[in-house]
Write a protein that binds this DNA or RNA. Structure first.
Length: 998
DNA sequence: TTCTAAGCG
DNA sequence: GGTTGCCGCTTAGAAT
């Protein structure tokens, strides 16, 4: 092997921290991917392999390694234990699922053609340090891959520290990847790398049981080391330290500090048995690797490797030693390390092989779960062949196919339309499936060509859309045939434009939502992947990308047929998997009362749309533009230059660079934060520019998102705006609204309210807005069963004033508005799973004060603390929480070991029971509104839902009669399923526009 | 495509 | 293995 030289790029990977990372990341993912069919946990190994492959192929931070060392700890009995028996003594044992994976990681390293490096009596850190020095001396470039900050002391010319991202982006506990050079270490520790052990000696490390000096944190430590040079000088000159307390503790703990420094110091001089030059990255032997991956039953990465290296994975045997029946894995399951020399001779008496799914006698299992598994097996069994679907191009064929659908009683439907917006979409084709593999495509709207000359005419070989719809109508309208789809609402909307209504249907997106909200996504692609192991033809591939993108009605019929019929086929197969799960998991009622009936209701609301006053919005846009220009000028004056006010980066440079204002927090990516609360703080200190920025941002938001954008959503035919509601977008059961989002129309500030005035009723009509008053707090009183709160709602008193009175001992009468405001913030905080930090932020008070408020609150309303503790405990035990109507919301990360992620999930779970129950109540109301209006012969149209509010359009003459009907239906919505002990209150008003009605 | 900020309940 | 930070969403524009 060639000696290490300049130009070599060497990755020194800290195997232990790599393994733990992979493990915790795997625990954040779905559990079902974390074990092999025989029960052997493999999640960490899988992610370990994914990362290794990435390192070998792409490297990291733009560097591709020539040498790759994966270094493991061999034993805990290192020299550190000798000098300090307590070293790492309190470290808990690794989790059970991880233990059998340690030897597998070493197998994985070998499978990639690499050598796992370890050496008795040394930690990985020691070996890494020795390698790093060697390599740097030889002029090579070294990347230390670890999350252990002990290794940061090794940073020097040629050596940088790299830690890849951890956690899940956008969630608490997430850390982006980072690469530290000398400056980076200085930023982190306040001292250069060579002084890091001195600083660590003072602060200690509780996880490794390194004592340090009590009461000294990173700030004090780096300040002291910078002042005195190093630990020994500091300890020699403690007399000079001014703070008596600090001097005393330093003197008392001098020996502990010296010991700590010995424990954390890494040195270059260890003799490593494995020469660094042996660790050159070899040509990858894909077959060998695939043998390992197949033995582990990793599907995705197996496919990736076979694609990348053009090896047919099906021709490769799973490594027999590690495959589920292999002797090595039997040992792993029995807790024996196959690498160990102490392997018992009696391998022959390996434990009985655990039953795999395939071993189960499905025919004998008549439990609902068993039946579900059986159905799943049949749905999977027949192979999906895209080319085998029928194209129906004449009436007789269609007739025969539909007859068979009548006989079968099941019809899966997928519409191909010319636009994703169902309000303008034309039907291009209809795919139908009646049994797995038995699907057909009926083209009706394909165009003859996509060039200008031939464009316009229909392609040959299609049936007239009207005829097809006429023949389809009896099937759609009969209860005798179950119609099945995935996300049926848009299709129902399109069909409704043709005068067709769909009676008796199932929507597998909604079934999936009912069963798996919070733990799986509900898109057709991911469902097909997860439950059928099938990858669907991509929509992007069908219509092309960028410049080559074509309109859907210009797609070739054969290709469209393959795509759409496959969707219908997959949908039908998924229905056979999912439908039995509904009964097996006792979720049928939830699905049939809260989900399915809402589909036609929402479709109808979307089709109704709402009228807006475009002239009013245009005027507002003009006003806002003027304001923005004026503020822009003022800011240019204040800053001394013009810059893009919309760029947080440029603004940060001006505020914290040029103007040297005190910067507060940084964002996740390390940029200065210029969020509203940061700017507000600066404004309070008397700085004018931040205040102007806030004004500009507010106006800019109103203009771009509302006054400019809303008119572009007006439908040319109806002259109204039609939003789209998603039923399965939130974990809690709330709806979401998009294109445009009509659930976030401004109301809180005067400027914004003007936009709400542009939502109007047409002549002769009024808008009626009806909203639940304090519904989530009422549900808190109900679910947590807090007598004081329940009584307050029964008495109809001001709930925030009552809370303030209880907590601060102030009488409700003539209560200062600020006291009430605080109580209100606490009440909302409780709903959100309160933290002292969050409340302090909200009220701009100290954390101690906020903590005291919370304590007081829990004393006054003891049921609330119990509610929170119970919710967390239940969620930990079951992985989900439920609404008062039984809808489940899953939080698999509630057990995450990352404290911030875990706490986040606990708060979410606490909030979910309330938010979700409220969502269920308004869903029940929405489903009942139309029948109630019909019964009263009223013609009001329900237009919008905004979480706790419904908006109707009502003829002037019917307003008086409509208000009480709406109010009654909403207030009685929980009945008869649930009789609340707290009254619900709905306020309803009518006006010419939404602002005044609300 | 990702990040940051801002709108709502 | 290191420490965050009040729940649920969608949209727009800049930066990458």
């Amino acid at each position: 092997m060639a000696a290490i030289k300049k130009g070599d790029r060497i990755f020194l990977v800290d195997g232990s921290s790599f393994v733990f990372r992979a493990y915790f990341q795997s625990m954040n993912q779905d559990r079902k991917y974390n074990a092999r069919s025989d029960g052997l946990p493999t999640g960490a190994v899988r992610l370990f392999c994914v990362k290794l492959l990435q390192f070998i192929r792409d490297g990291a931070v733009g560097i591709k390694p020539t040498h790759l060392a994966i270094i493991f700890d061999k034993t805990e009995d290192t020299f550190r234990r000798e000098i300090y028996p307590e070293y790492k003594a309190h470290r808990p044992d690794p989790p059970d699922e991880l233990i059998p994976q340690f030897p597998l990681m070493r197998e994985a390293v070998r499978a990639f053609g690499l050598i796992p490096v370890e050496q008795g009596g040394f930690e990985a850190d020691d070996i890494i340090a020795a390698y790093a020095c060697q390599a740097a001396d030889a002029g090579a470039e070294v990347l230390i891959v670890s999350s252990d900050k002990d290794l940061m002391q090794m940073v020097r010319p040629g050596v940088t520290f790299y830690d890849f991202e951890s956690g899940i982006k956008g969630k608490p506990g997430y850390r982006p990847e980072r690469r530290l050079d000398r400056d980076g270490v200085i930023e982190k520790f306040g001292v250069p790398p060579e002084k890091v052990p001195d600083v660590q000696a003072l602060i200690g490390d509780p996880t490794d049981n390194v004592p340090g000096v009590p009461g000294i944190g990173i700030k004090t430590a780096s300040q002291l080391i910078n002042e005195y040079g190093d630990l020994e000088s500091l300890l020699a000159r403690t007399a000079e330290i001014k703070q008596p307390k600090r001097r005393e503790t330093l003197e008392q703990n001098a020996e502990a500090a010296r010991l700590s420094k010995k424990l954390v110091t890494l040195d270059c001089n260890m003799k490593v048995d494995t020469p660094l030059e042996d660790l050159v990255v070899p040509e990858l032997d894909a077959k060998h690797l695939l043998g390992f991956l197949k033995a582990m039953e990793f599907t995705a990465i197996t496919k990736r490797v076979s694609d990348l290296y053009e090896v047919d994975a099906s021709q490769v045997e799973a490594d027999p030693r590690l495959a589920p029946d292999g002797s090595a894995t039997a040992d792993l399951l029995a807790g024996v390390d196959p690498d160990s020399d102490e392997k018992p001779a009696a391998t022959a008496s390996a434990p009985a092989k655990p039953k795999t799914k395939k071993d189960l006698d499905l025919g004998a299992d008549l439990t609902p779960q068993g039946l579900a598994a059986q159905r799943a097996a049949t749905a999977k069994s027949a192979k999906i062949d895209r080319a085998a679907y029928t194209i129906i191009d004449d009436a007789a064929k269609l007739e025969r196919f539909l007859e068979r659908a009548f006989d079968g009683g099941v019809l899966s439907i997928e519409l191909l339309t010319s636009s994703p917006d169902p309000m303008v979409a034309e039907i291009v084709g209809i795919a139908l499936a009646i049994a797995p593999g038995d699907a057909a495509y009926v083209p009706v709207g394909h165009r003859a060509g996509n060039d200008l000359l031939s464009g316009g005419g229909l392609a040959p070989g299609q049936l007239p859309v009207r005829d097809v719809i006429a023949r389809l109508a009896p099937l759609l309208r009969t209860k005798g045939v179950m119609k099945i789809g995935h996300d049926l609402k848009p299709d129902i909307t399109v069909l409704a434009q043709h005068g067709l209504d769909v009676v008796s249907f199932d929507d597998i997106q909604l079934i999936s939502y009912v069963l798996d909200a919070g733990r799986e996504s509900h898109g057709l692609d991911s469902l097909a992947e997860a439950h059928l192991g099938h990858t669907r033809l991509k929509h992007g591939e069908l219509i092309g990308k960028g410049r080559d993108r074509v309109a859907l009605d210009n797609i070739d019929i054969t290709r469209a047929a393959a795509y759409a019929a496959e969707a219908a086929d997959v949908t039908l197969r998924l229905w056979r998997v999912f439908k039995p799960r509904l009964t097996a998991e006792r979720m049928t009622t939830v699905y049939e009362t809260l989900e399915r009936p809402l589909v036609p209701v929402l479709s109808r609301m979307e089709r109704s749309g709402i009228a807006i006053d475009r002239a009013m919005l245009a005027r507002l846009s003009g006003d806002f533009a003027q304001t923005m220009a004026r503020v822009d000028d003022e800011i240019a004056e204040l800053a001394g230059e013009r810059f893009n006010l919309g760029s947080p980066k440029q603004l940060g440079d001006i505020l914290f660079g040029k103007m040297q204002l005190p910067g507060g927090s940084k964002t996740a990516t390390g940029a200065w934060s210029t969020r509203a609360n940061v700017l507000e703080e600066l404004a309070e200190q008397g700085h004018v520019l931040p205040e102007r920025i806030l004004e500009w941002r507010q106006v800019s938001k109103l203009k771009s998102t509302y006054t400019d954008a809303l008119p572009t959503y007006v439908n040319a035919q109806s002259n109204r705006v039609h939003t789209s509601y998603a039923l399965a977008a939130t974990t809690t059961g709330r709806l979401s609204s998009s294109e445009p989002n009509l659930q976030n129309i401004p109301i809180r500030r005067e400027d914004g309210r003007k936009i709400r005035k542009a939502f109007v009723a047409p002549k002769g009509h009024k808008l009626v807005s009806a909203d639940y008053s304090q519904i989530e707090l009422r549900l808190l009183a109900e679910i947590a069963n807090v007598p004081t709160l329940r009584q307050a709602f029964q008495d109809g008193v001001d709930i925030h004033a009552m809370t303030a009175s209880e907590m601060f001992g102030v009488p409700v009468k003539d209560m200062p508005s600020d006291v009430r405001r605080r109580a209100k913030a606490i009440n909302f905080g409780i709903i959100y799973g309160i933290s002292a930090f969050g409340l302090a932020n909200q009220l701009a008070i100290g954390r101690d004060e906020a903590g005291a408020y919370i304590k007081k609150y829990f004393e006054r309303f003891p049921g609330i603390r119990d509610y929170m503790d119970e919710t967390k405990a239940f969620c930990r035990d079951h992985g989900f929480v439920a609404t008062i109507f039984g809808r489940k919301m899953h939080y698999p990360e509630i057990k995450a070991s990352n404290p911030s992620l875990r706490a986040f999930n606990e708060r979410a779970a606490i909030n979910a029971r309330l938010q979700g129950s409220a969502a269920d109540i308004i869903r029940r109301a929405m489903i009942r509104i139309q029948p109630a209006l019909d019964a009263a012969s009223l013609s009001a149209k329900m237009l919008l839902q905004v979480h706790d509010e419904l908006v109707f359009e009502v003829p002037d003459g019917e307003v008086e009669k409509t208000l009480p009907v709406v109010k009654r239906v909403m207030e009685e919505a929980p009945l008869p399923a649930v009789a609340l002990r707290v009254p619900l209150q709905v306020d309803a008003r009518a006006a010419d526009n939404w602002d005044e009605a609300h």
